[in-house]
Amino acid sequence: MGRFYQDTRRRFLKRLVKGGFTLLASLFGITAAGFLYPSEVKKRTTKFFYLLNEDDLPKEGVKKMELAYEHEQRAMVLRVFVVCNAGETFALSSVCSHLGCLVDWSRSKKRFLCPCHGGSYDIEGRVLSGPPPLPLTRIPLKMEGEKVFAGVKV
């Protein structure tokens, strides 16, 4: 008797305790992860907000605008560019497609320049240089009478 049984018994109990704790910790970990994961992830939809009057659209070139709108009772501001180039009018988001800094239009260089990592885009929003992987996002415009509305994903 004695030693051998005591040793196996000891080892068995040790494993039991360790296993129990591991199980408990895992269960807690899973529960905690589930708890922290958001319970509803909202689908984003495009909503239109008033931007400016038709008369104020640029005849040629780039016009910087602050699109102010309300989303879930929060006042939001989005900087957009209204562009008229070669007879076509459209709007571009100012959010750089690299890491999301806000680009600005340089009149002298005739480019959108990103202050962060040297990304630049032409007047159509196409990438000219730097790390941005995609062109600037086009913002849909809608006319209703005299008024121009811009579509934002909210």
Partner: peptide
């Protein structure tokens, strides 16, 4: 009501 496992925690 909404958070996963919220009532449990």
């Amino acid at each position: 009501r909404e958070v996963h496992f919220g009532a449990l925690i």
